[in-house]
């Protein structure tokens, strides 16, 4: 009995460590980041387009970075979601078992490639290609979108596949038995029934894209500006922190933590939406 209690308490402690880590990180970021936001004025900080940490007095406005993060993320979804959903439909609805058995591990391997390798490939192959065939300096929203679009594929595909697979087989059989073809069944029955899970796939893919740092730094050029076309360089929220944290001190360092607060809020909102949507889907 004693032993049971001891084991249970140990396991409880281990489980709580995750929550504790989250609490510590959250508190730390908020404590470091929030004061500078208020000194600067929250609206000025969020919607200001000037980021001049070495000016006198320094100006911190992250709007260009927010726009940059969303531009690159939207582009990543525009590329990654159709490809990912198509792959998921193929793998779960149409692929013969042997082909699915080959593709699934390949996909997991893609998820395991370090992001610096993606960035490296982007710099070597993608940037020169964009410079030559699309225009601009190469490092751009477009380059970030393409690289991130590929990087979110494993997330989008595996969550979409889970969503499609959780549609009862009986729905498909009922549809087939009414003379529907494979595609008609997918389009009219399986996809609508899996809708909630597919939305979750989009949102979690977004979360992955918003949070990615290394590959993005390497291919987006990192200029603080609101991009006027997809061939212009941008800086994202994550890049901003990673690029400047090395040498920042004082208020500048606090402003980088404040950038982290914004990022944190965006990801929290996305996760909450994803959870709410998949819970709604399960109920209906």
């Amino acid at each position: 009995m004693k032993k049971e209690t001891a084991i249970r308490l140990t396991l409880l402690g281990l489980a709580m460590s995750t929550v504790t880590a989250l609490a510590v990180i959250t508190t730390f970021i908020l404590k470091e980041g929030v004061p500078v936001m208020f000194r600067q004025g929250p609206a000025q900080f969020l919607f200001g387009t000037e980021w001049r940490p070495s000016a006198e007095p320094p100006v911190f406005g992250v709007w260009a970075m927010i726009v940059g993060s969303f531009a690159v993320t939207a582009g990543a979804l525009a590329i990654g979601f159709p490809v990912g959903l198509g792959s998921a439909i193929f793998l779960s609805e149409f692929a013969p078992r042997r082909i699915a058995g080959l593709l699934k591990p390949a996909l997991e391997l893609l998820a395991g490639i370090p992001s610096v390798v993606f960035g490296f490939m982007g710099m070597l192959v993608l940037l020169p290609w964009i410079r030559a065939h699309v225009g601009g300096p190469g490092a751009s929203v477009l380059a970030g979108s393409i690289i991130l679009g590929i990087m979110i594929l494993p997330t989008v595909i595996s969550i979409s596949m889970d969503a499609l697979r959780s549609v009862p087989r009986s729905y498909r059989e009922g549809s087939f038995a009414l003379g529907a073809t494979g595609w008609q069944t997918t389009w009219r029955v399986t996809l609508p029934a899996a809708r909630a899970g597919l939305v979750a796939a989009v949102i979690l893919g977004m979360g992955r894209a918003v949070g990615e740092t290394m590959a993005v730094i390497m291919v987006t050029g990192n200029t603080v500006q609101i991009p006027r076309s997809i061939t212009q360089p941008v800086r994202t929220l994550t890049s901003n922190i990673a690029l400047e944290m090395n040498y920042a001190d004082g208020e500048h360092r606090e402003a980088l933590f404040a950038t982290g607060v914004v990022l944190f809020a965006i990801i929290m909102i996305l996760n909450t939406i994803a959870n709410a949507v998949s819970r709604l889907g399960r109920r209906s």
């Binding site: 009986s170 729905y171 059989e173 038995a177 009414l178 073809t181």
Partner: peptide
Amino acid sequence: LADLRRRVGMVFAVPIPLP
């Protein structure tokens, strides 16, 4: 197949209306 399944209707053990 689609034509065959239109000529041969089927009702299953567990009723499964589409959602």
